[in-house]
Simulated assay, not measured.
Amino acid sequence: MTVNDWVILITALGGIEGIKQFLKWWMSRRTNARIEDAHADVEEFKALREYNEFLQKQLSEKEERFVEQTGRLRSVQDELFKAKEDISKLSIELALKRCEKKKCGQREPPNGY
């Protein structure tokens, strides 16, 4: 190549400024790649954070429903235990007051047993 060919090539590439821009890009291509990777990581972490917040919200709602259902279950169990306790007391009272002989005249109050 002659000097004239080199001048034509440099001029076609934008002159000295074009060569400077090319060298600047060449020297910073790895840095630019790291910056792009960092931006991609930021976006990924943002998406993961939003998904995590969504899951946390769902979990807290399910925990609230669980607490509510547990409260209902305990109240129903309390009613059941109270009813069983009342039945047991009545059974004991009946056993104490029941006369073993049928048509017993000394039983108070008489009920036909």
Rank of each mutant, 00 (worst) to 15 (best):
M1T: 07
T2I: 01
V3A: 04
V3P: 00
V3G: 00
W6P: 01
W6I: 09
L9T: 12
I10N: 08
I10Q: 09
T11G: 09
L13I: 04
G15D: 01
I16S: 10
E17S: 09
E17G: 04
E17I: 07
G18R: 03
G18Y: 04
I19E: 12
K24T: 13
K24H: 13
K24W: 11
W25E: 14
W26I: 06
W26S: 14
S28L: 09
R29N: 05
R29E: 06
R30S: 13
R30M: 12
A33C: 00
R34N: 02
R34Q: 05
R34A: 02
I35M: 11
I35W: 07
D37H: 15
D37Q: 15
A38C: 13
H39T: 06
A40F: 04
D41Y: 08
V42D: 05
E43D: 15
E44S: 12
E44D: 12
K46N: 04
A47I: 04
A47F: 03
L48Q: 15
Y51V: 04
F54I: 04
L55G: 02
L55R: 08
Q56A: 11
S60H: 06
E61P: 02
E61W: 06
E61T: 07
K62H: 15
E63M: 09
E63V: 09
E64T: 15
E64Q: 15
E64G: 09
E68W: 10
Q69N: 14
Q69A: 15
Q69E: 15
G71W: 00
G71Y: 00
R72K: 10
L73F: 13
R74M: 14
S75Q: 14
S75P: 02
V76K: 06
V76N: 05
V76I: 12
D78M: 10
E79I: 03
L80R: 06
L80Y: 09
L80F: 10
F81P: 01
F81T: 11
F81D: 13
F81H: 13
F81L: 12
K82M: 11
A83Y: 05
A83C: 03
D86H: 11
I87C: 06
I87S: 06
I87K: 07
I87T: 10
S88A: 14
K89I: 07
K89M: 01
L90C: 02
L90H: 01
I92E: 10
E93Y: 04
L94P: 01
A95P: 03
L96F: 14
L96I: 15
K97P: 00
K97T: 12
R98E: 07
R98G: 00
E100H: 08
K101W: 11
K102W: 08
K103S: 12
C104A: 09
G105Q: 12
G105M: 13
R107L: 02
E108G: 06
P109F: 03
P110E: 09
N111V: 00
G112E: 04
G112N: 01
